[in-house]
Design a protein around this nucleic acid. Structure first.
Lengths: 207, 207
DNA sequence: CGACGATGTTACCCGAGGTAACACCCCCGG
DNA sequence: CCGGGGGTGTTACCTCGGGTAACATCGTCG
């Protein structure tokens, strides 16, 4: 029996533990769940990072493919964007624990530290960047804007989606609308609020 | 001598180490930098989280206040938004290592896990939420939109700012423009790209 | 049969967070 | 003068998690 099937079994075990204990599950725990001991895990995955990467890769491939497909859908742009947003939110809604993995930046990462976006998220960001670059006419600044927006949109959806998933303030559809509205410049279009009479009052905002 | 001054000195030392070694600096290292040993740190801060919190609080208060001020600036809305963006980017540009702290969600956080935004960022998000709520007329959905947007904008600026800080693709001013443009609906306004002839070609995208 | 490549084991190392127990120093009140 | 209490600090230890070394086993292929 080649290595591959064993790897799958180990990943399955790791998966169950992560589902149960969250992304902080120890290697010992994972090994125990698989009915074996640590060194085997290390033989297969090198280090914890390798295991986690394999695990995330496995789970993200689906979501990533779905997003890729959504980005290529032949729709009006607004509909396409909503479709992508909905795809992402549906994905994280379906498997919250997995989602935790995606967003969990590796804690100990000396040297190459500092990416606020975990690898899986970065792939999504690149996907968006590519889509914007190829589909939207942005003039000379095309490359810069596409890349900045790719990251920005990803981060936006990450943070908003996280909040939505945790506190469930509304339906998924409404959340999609809220985010699409933001991207559609509704913040710019809305009128000023009729300031109810306060030029410079000495009240400090409630903390 | 009361406890407070000592605390400050210890925080200063911790600060230097974080600047030098990043947010993964060990308690031992921090103690050594302060010329003392671990237990003292624990006496003052309880645990690592306490130290980090104290440290972030200290540094964020400035940035947070600056952002609060920027949000209250009496400008055209677009200018105000740009001002806020610039304030944030300037802040993280000035002290990159500190910024790492802000964005570093506490790794071991059993139970209440899952906030993609670190506490400091969440404060910023709340600030934005409040500003939107009080300044922009969004109709019946006001509360939902403001809250979703607060998180979303914060996440967007976090991710984009992180990328900008690491790869420095352009000046700060241009980055501010790029993000403001995104928030201003330029994604919606731009024309479709003149698809250079490809209905459904069997080429797979470069990986 | 022997060797190789997989399986698995126990036992250990290291570093980091965290704590216990002890010692010093100084000031303030009886 | 003396005796605390509250600050300073120490050494030595515990626990737990990532990671490794060394050893044993089983099945297959030449």
């Amino acid at each position: 029996m080649s290595r591959e099937p064993r790897r799958e079994q180990l990943l399955n075990a790791a998966d169950r533990v992560i589902q149960r204990d969250g992304p902080t599950a120890s290697m010992n725990a994972i090994a125990a769940e698989a009915g074996i001991t640590k060194p085997i895990l290390y033989r297969h995955f090198g280090d914890r990072n390798g295991l986690i990467s394999a695990l995330t890769e496995r789970h993200t491939s689906g979501l990533l493919a779905a997003i890729r497909a959504a980005l290529a859908e032949p729709l009006e742009r607004r509909d396409r964007v909503e479709h992508v947003l909905d795809t992402y939110l549906a994905g994280i809604e379906a498997r919250p624990q997995v989602y935790r993995l995606l967003t969990h930046p590796e804690p100990g990462d000396p040297g190459g530290v500092g990416n606020a976006l975990a690898p899986a998220l970065r792939q999504i960001a690149e996907e968006i960047t590519r889509a914007v670059q190829s589909q939207v006419d942005l003039g000379a600044d095309r490359d810069l804007l596409a890349e900045a927006w790719g990251r920005g949109i990803t981060g936006m959806v990450l943070a908003a989606g996280d909040w939505w998933l945790n506190s469930r303030p509304c339906s998924r559809t409404r959340m999609v609308q809220a985010l699409a509205d933001l991207l559609w410049g509704r913040l710019a279009a809305a009128a000023d609020r009729p300031t109810p009479a306060l030029p410079t009052p000495p009240v400090e905002p409630a903390d």
